[in-house]
Design a protein around this nucleic acid. Structure first.
Lengths: 142, 142
DNA sequence: TTGTTGTAGTTAACGCGTTAATTACATGTG
DNA sequence: CACATGTAATTAACGCGTTAACTACAACAA
């Protein structure tokens, strides 16, 4: 069955929802001169430790060509370091650098405030439910 | 409370979910040489009738500068028509043209198949629940 | 060893996202 | 009317999304 209107279209609803949520975080990122995508990459590196480019792109939901550009920008600001994998000259290993960790730490309090506010307005229960459904959708379709 | 990992991050989950869903629709759109955004604009015009640019941008979740570019492309292919509003020379009224409606009709069967498949895999109940939560999130945050 | 196939990353081209600045027109105030 | 303020749309600049093509290296077979 087709969605009878654009509000009940799953792709549009997901897009719109992401938009209103990101509107809360964007000023914070802009104030520190990092783009959303750079921020996602940093967070994955912070959480996952040294990792290959392909896995990083996958986990940060960034396409390989974008990751190439993002790596250049982050490396230029010494937020990450880039090394070839020993034993395989094709692979690239990315590692978060002290400046990168420092940025993540610096933004944590502000992130917490924003996240708490969203959770308070939307409700803890519903947020968990939404995250569960999204996770299921992702796992089922990918 | 901060999300303990990127999978439970609401922005990332919304992004990733949209990604896996759109992966289903993208080949269809590419086969007809329309971008996702052009498609959203066409659908809103088809559903809402003649409408001002600002409202169109809002309903299609497209920013004004993007809409300007999209209008040029769609007008060039005679999918839509563009007219100044009488009584206010600033406003622009967009209307879907026969070729635009024809494209929407042509894609309907394929859309239905894809949408049905997603709904079958994910479950009708859960899909409705997810749409409700997304709608609530959008209304609550915007 | 040499040639083939496969894989990881990069580059290229084009359209969109985002913010800021600008243009064109409308509205309100003196 | 003249001027300031406000609003709709466009333009500009820069980074990302997307696909396709390309480079570099690895693995494998003859």
């Amino acid at each position: 069955m087709l969605p009878e209107n654009t509000r009940r279209s799953l792709p549009m609803a997901l897009l719109h929802a992401r938009e209103v949520v990101m509107a809360r975080f964007r000023p914070m990122l802009a104030a520190h001169d990092v783009t959303e995508q750079q921020w996602r990459v940093l967070r994955v590196l912070s959480e996952a430790g040294p990792v290959e480019a392909t896995e990083l792109a996958d986990r940060a939901s960034v396409l390989p060509p974008s990751l190439t550009r993002i790596i250049k920008a982050l490396e230029g600001r010494k937020f990450i370091t880039r090394n070839k994998a020993e034993g395989d000259g094709r692979r690239v290993i990315l590692t978060i650098a002290p400046a990168g960790s420092a940025l993540i730490d610096a933004l944590s309090p502000e992130r917490r405030v924003i996240y708490d506010d969203i959770e308070k307005r939307f409700g803890h229960e519903r947020l968990e439910q939404l995250l569960d459904l999204l996770e299921a959708l992702i796992d089922g379709e990918s």
